[in-house]
Design a protein around this nucleic acid. Sequence first.
DNA 1: GCCTCCCCTAACCCAGCGGTCAATAAGGCA
DNA 2: TGCCTTATTGACCGCTGGGTTAGGGGAGGC
Lengths: 221, 221
Amino acid sequence: MTATDTRGVSSESRSQDSRDEILKAASTLFASRGIHETSMSEVARAARVSKALIFWHFRTKEDLFMAVLNRLLEPYVIDFAEEAGVLDEKEQITKLVESYLLFVRDNASSIRFFIAQLLHGDRTYNVLTSQVLALYDGYRALLTDLISRTQEKGLCSREFPAQVTAAFLLSTLNGMLLGFLFVRDGDVDLEGAMGMLRQWLFREASPSEPGGVPTPSVRAL
Amino acid sequence: MTATDTRGVSSESRSQDSRDEILKAASTLFASRGIHETSMSEVARAARVSKALIFWHFRTKEDLFMAVLNRLLEPYVIDFAEEAGVLDEKEQITKLVESYLLFVRDNASSIRFFIAQLLHGDRTYNVLTSQVLALYDGYRALLTDLISRTQEKGLCSREFPAQVTAAFLLSTLNGMLLGFLFVRDGDVDLEGAMGMLRQWLFREASPSEPGGVPTPSVRAL
DNA sequence: GCCTCCCCTAACCCAGCGGTCAATAAGGCA
DNA sequence: TGCCTTATTGACCGCTGGGTTAGGGGAGGC
């Protein structure tokens, strides 16, 4: 989608195009079938390019794989600071949790890939782990801080220390993530999940909505 | 460990022995490195047996893999009914949750393997998924029922319907599972996790124990 | 003592793998 | 136009993978 960008076909952009094409094909194949079940010939065929060209762009298969990894990691950033000021803490937490779930929904396939990769523990383990872990810790810190401030203002229960609550909440989110990844038909009940989380976090009474939506369906968590 | 069982070397037991040896070696290798990164020659070497013998016992590599899968699935059973009567509902829930966490701790490597396998979604997907899902649903049903009864007796909060609570709790448990799988040094804070869960479930006050154990450590959830 | 059936092996087969290379096409620049 | 650099390819190579095959050896039956 990003930049089909056929401006000034001159000079190095020809090379760049084929490189992108290869990366795109490799991303799809690696993510869906794993590195070991994907041959370079298949990547070449999918990218409609000769196998030798792949080795011209990338020294080895593993190099290509690393490039794919980085490409897939690109959207994994926490861009939260922007809308911080306008919302109160409660809403910020809600927002943060929601963005987690939305992200999971929209990036299910690459998350699947990364978890499988992490579980597998190849050489890539170290570099990938540290990167993913950094993101994860960032998110947790953000959440802990937010919960802590919310508690100070008396906006939510002080039953547990903020970091305990945050760790617990994150566990639950990860459990939901796992649930999402195994959902059969790919559609996921985000609203239901959010509602449950909000109620749990803030001890809200069940929001008896005008339309009278009954208990949020909880299938397939 | 089970049955080195060298009784009556006669007749078909020789075959059985070598078959077991192969399965054992294959289980270890497949579980730790995955099917595609494990060659039949490696399995043969690990089982100290010729490669051809493997193909005498199992028609193809995939057959062997399926046999391994079933072997690894053996310990995955819910044997809960036994001690049901003696405990009250609250303790039963605690017990059930604890047995989940203990199971996760003790079977981390095969759980890892199964999740990786499920995430991957090979052909094995269908047969494995259905089996794991059946177990999972069994556990959930057990839990839902138990929570429901506990609520009826007024022993725990009725804030949410039993099945919502169960699904939520299961999500959290799965999140913890995920956390356990990625714990660095392999040791896991079971007591801390259990404490948090109990408090959450039953709204217990922090159990200020005589020894004065401070807030349960929550690292690495 | 010999035959038979079951385990088990060494040696082989060949498709497909990751990777290389010499040859070529496709511009930019003079 | 011709030359130089950069992209691109088809053909090739060594090797490892899953899978086969022909045959050896040992325990039971007769």
